[in-house]
């Protein structure tokens, strides 16, 4: 079997998870590569979850939350918005392409957007190729 990107999706319970459900109930077909973990809010996503995903064999991580201003917990997504760029910076230092992590906003009514984001992400990761933690500059991240 040829290589297929493995992507872990962290979806907030209130907007994005429901958006993903809506994509399902609307029978929108899209890439099967993103597998979803439901979190209360995108702000629950610890940087270590992302690292853990890469350690466990993921080729990409997708984090989805409510649109800015629409957070069920008032402002959680704003914290995510500030946290993820820092995480990407760190990943880069580890030799991990920052594009392997994507943060986006999908509301409960955006089934189509969810499908589009998943397709885009899958294609992006396919372009980047398989992630190998032992590749290239990953060395100084290992001690």
């Amino acid at each position: 079997m040829s290589w297929e990107p493995k992507i872990v999706g962290f979806l907030c319970n209130w907007c994005s998870y429901r958006g993903a459900d809506l994509a399902g109930t609307s029978r929108i077909h899209f890439a099967p590569n993103v597998k979803v973990i439901r979190v209360p809010c995108s702000t629950r996503v610890e940087p270590s979850f992302v690292i853990k995903a890469f350690q466990s064999g993921a080729d990409g991580v997708l984090i989805l939350g409510c649109h800015p201003g629409d957070c069920h917990y008032i402002e959680g997504n704003y914290k995510t918005m500030r946290r993820v760029p820092l995480l990407k910076k760190m990943l880069k230092q580890f030799g991990i392409e920052p594009e392997r992590v994507r943060l986006d906003w999908v509301s409960a009514s955006e089934g189509q957007k969810y499908a589009t984001v998943v397709n885009e992400m899958t294609e992006k990761v396919r372009e980047l190729g398989p992630f190998n933690a032992n590749n290239g500059e990953g060395q100084h991240g290992k001690n």
Binding site: P40, T43, R44, S48
Partner: peptide, 22 residues
Amino acid sequence: KGCGACVAACPSAAIKHKHYTT
């Protein structure tokens, strides 16, 4: 309300999010 903002931010991993534990 259980959003988890503090849990993800705690540098000592001292906060436990019930039902969404690390």
